[in-house]
Design a binder for these strands. Structure first.
Length: 101
DNA sequence: TAGACGTAGCGTCATGGGGC
DNA sequence: GCCCCATGACGCTACGTCTA
């Protein structure tokens, strides 16, 4: 079950995926009852965590993109090297053939 | 030109690993 | 154990391109 389009307190959209269909705030409230922590505290902590994770995800994607670009560059370099070596080998073979004629 | 389709980027959740 | 961080997975939106 997946519920989409729920508006959060921040105005962003929250997606509830899989078996968990309980709103995060509701969960926070429930745990508050258990741990006796003020709801404001829990909400604020959650907000801070979301902000940090948002930035972490952004950074993670940036690094991944950079890594992929590096790999692509490496592929290009290796392909060039391969081409050069093939050419070199061909030339060597030519020389060898003429010597033996 | 409207709708289908592919792609990039984003936010969020879940989770594993490391530090304390 | 708890906390924090990094990252994979998922769903959503925006945008560009193609096709009938």
């Amino acid at each position: 079950m997946a519920v989409t389009g729920d508006e959060t307190e921040t105005g962003s959209t929250v997606k509830l995926i899989g078996s968990s269909s309980i709103h995060p705030l509701a969960m926070a409230h429930t745990s508050t009852l258990i741990s006796q922590k003020p709801l404001e505290d829990v909400t604020q902590k959650r907000e801070q965590r979301l902000i940090k994770n948002r930035e972490a995800a952004r950074e993670c994607r940036r690094k991944k993109k950079e890594y992929v670009k590096c790999l692509e560059n490496r592929v290009a370099v290796l392909e060039n090297q391969n081409k050069t070596l093939i050419e070199e080998l061909r030339a060597m073979k030519d020389i060898y053939r003429h010597k033996n004629e």
